[in-house]
């Protein structure tokens, strides 16, 4: 499947500021892909990595630059759970809800977090500090129940330990 080639140079909105830098980096990603099939997902991953989420202007910009309809991009962003179109908190708490963690009491840990932070999976705290996500298996089943906060993985978590862990991020 060939995509039609872009016509002429594209002007990047936002100019020289932070937004401009982000847009140029995304543009650079798009250029790197050299029109390969399947490029859309890595570009979206890069964009989300830069911005923290996928706001509408970014999606529109990518749609235009890659000659893809906005609805198709929306279809991809909404399908894959790694993409989010709402901003996430500073610290994303990934609660593992895999079978091994569930069997060893994972739901109880989730309830503890829900109670402590007052949010449900998919939501962010008012102060923007924490977002809560449910992940289906981080692959550390030997140490279940497992919770990941950003790059830190906590193992054999108990409700008491969970409260302590949350405390260290305040």
């Amino acid at each position: 499947m060939e995509r039609p080639k872009p016509v002429g140079p594209i002007t990047v909105p936002g100019g020289r500021g932070v937004a401009g830098r982000i847009f140029s980096q995304i543009q650079a990603s798009i250029d790197e892909t050299k029109e390969e099939a399947g490029a859309l997902i890595p570009v979206l991953q890069r964009a989300q990595g830069l911005v923290g989420y996928l706001p509408q202007p970014i999606l529109r910009s990518i749609a235009r630059d890659m000659r893809v309809s906005l609805s198709e991009i929306y279809g991809i962003a909404s399908f894959y759970s790694f993409f989010t179109m709402v901003p996430r908190g500073k610290y994303v708490i990934s609660m593992c809800m895999g079978t091994a963690c569930y069997v060893r009491g994972g739901e109880r840990i989730l309830n503890t977090v829900q109670k402590e932070l007052g949010i449900d999976p998919g939501q962010t705290t008012h102060d923007g500090l924490f977002s809560l996500e449910m992940v289906r298996c981080l692959g550390c089943c030997g140490l279940s129940p497992v919770v990941a906060i950003e790059d830190n993985i906590y193992r054999r978590v108990t409700p008491t330990k969970m409260q302590e862990i949350l405390g260290t991020y305040a």
Binding site: M1, I41, P42, Y80, F82
Partner: peptide
């Protein structure tokens, strides 16, 4: 290497290939 984006169904053969092609899985 093609990283996934968090969809269990992409472990299914045809969905995985669709994903590599940049589509919904």
């Amino acid at each position: 290497v093609f990283p996934g984006a968090g969809a269990f169904v992409c472990g299914e053969e045809t969905a995985l290939l669709a994903s590599i092609e940049g589509k919904r899985g």
